[in-house]
Write a protein that binds this DNA or RNA. Structure first.
Lengths: 231, 231
DNA sequence: ATTTAAATCAATTAAAAAGTTGTCCTAATT
DNA sequence: AATTAGGACAACTTTTTAATTGATTTAAAT
């Protein structure tokens, strides 16, 4: 009990993440007083699509997977959530409910910050507002990319694209491929699990990637980029 | 898409559960306007210990398991949550965060009701308040029982007690034992998984229960009650 | 009409998780 | 000091879940 609480306190006493550095000390106090910290264990839901959202989540450590739920167990993965990122920003200013689910791929230390506190600080602090806008903007761009992929690309391009995307997440977790099942990859690409399996094998045969158990080694990133671009 | 939405609407258009029958039509409107409905799939978290609680959950269908998280993956199961029950009532009037986690054992249709709406209705409607008090009271009694068990009983009594408890949940789900692992049972009784396995076998040998795969048949409820009482 | 892309289905294999059992260790009780 | 309750560990088995493969079907695109 004691040791865990101590490490918790390390987090609690300081909001060290870059995006909070630009706050005044009163603003830090406001955020500090409006937050709580939770350990989400591997496999826990950080957000549940459709549930009331009275707070945003800020990831201290660990990674998670964000997805939208369709009918009948269908899911589409949207992104890997990394340390230093927010979840549920879309609930602060507009919707009152989370419009997607997310689930932790590893244990995650997370701040939950009441959304009123975020809104207040944004109104006071232009610089902080600016970084929030930047985040929204990036998310928008990513959503548009996802949409384009779903609308226009076919299997090869889709899986090549997400392989490169996941590869880019290796700096946050070098073993990220081991944390994702074939179904997870398929749900990122929006294809069936079986198709994903077959395509990965064929990519391996073509020398684009290397499959070692669940780990995937990107051998020819340029080749993959080419396939991704062609669609 | 269509069929699912239709069944959803059946729920959404009417708050049919007994405990809402005593509300005036304005109160029903207030609750209706402050609620949303979510399908939690088997294995999804309904609540996460420590997260902000801006709403209470009301179970329409399905069952779930409520537990408290300790350090290092230790959990203690508190109860089976059944249709017609609330989750998170303790957050309405006092704590701002959930003080326990809960996870669905089957798909669950759930109303999330903003806690302000519940508080408002309780203040207006004495009869509704009365039923809420009754619920709190029952939960208190159950918590005291749990505490007594943990403090004073030993293995045999603990496992006998929870077998009878789970048996009592069969009217809400006849297959409930199949939904619980040996670890789940052990975490209800507060003993190790291995001890639970061994005790179940010994109970079977003594003709108290019958084990068929994961299902458990209570053969001698009086005998179990005896063991449970003795501790 | 024919080709192509990709989902679905069914069967199989592989890997992971859960359950089981015996042995040993520890702390409390007698 | 001896006994007892019950957890912890290790080895093993069973069950469940995930991955794979090939065959078939569907639907769109040429």
């Amino acid at each position: 009990m004691k040791t865990i609480l101590e490490t918790d306190n390390d987090f609690i006493c300081d909001i060290q993440a870059p995006c909070f550095q630009m706050l005044t000390s009163e603003e830090v106090e406001l955020v500090r007083g409006s937050k709580t910290q939770v350990l989400f264990r591997k496999g826990d839901h950080l957000t549940k699509q459709g549930a009331f959202a009275s707070y945003v989540l800020f990831i201290i450590s660990g990674i998670a997977r964000q997805y939208i739920e369709g009918d009948g167990n269908k899911t589409h993965n949207l992104r890997i959530i990394k340390p230093g990122e927010f979840v549920g920003l879309s609930a602060v200013f507009t919707k009152n409910t989370f419009n997607y689910s997310s689930i932790s791929l590893t244990d995650c230390q997370v701040f939950l910050i009441e959304k009123d506190a975020i809104a207040t600080v944004v109104k006071q602090n232009g610089l902080f507002g600016f970084t929030m806008i930047k985040r929204y903007c990036e998310q928008n761009a990513n959503l548009v990319d996802t949409l384009r992929t779903v609308l226009y690309k076919q299997m090869n391009g889709r899986i090549a694209e997400i392989l490169l995307y996941i590869e880019g997440c290796k700096k946050d977790n070098p073993h990220i491929f081991q944390l994702l099942s074939r179904k997870d990859l398929a749900d990122f690409a929006g294809i069936s699990t079986e198709s994903a399996v077959k395509l990965l094998k064929s990519f391996e045969k073509d020398g684009l990637i290397e499959l070692n158990e669940k780990d995937i080694e990107i051998v020819d990133p340029n080749g993959l980029a080419e396939i991704s671009k062609k669609g």
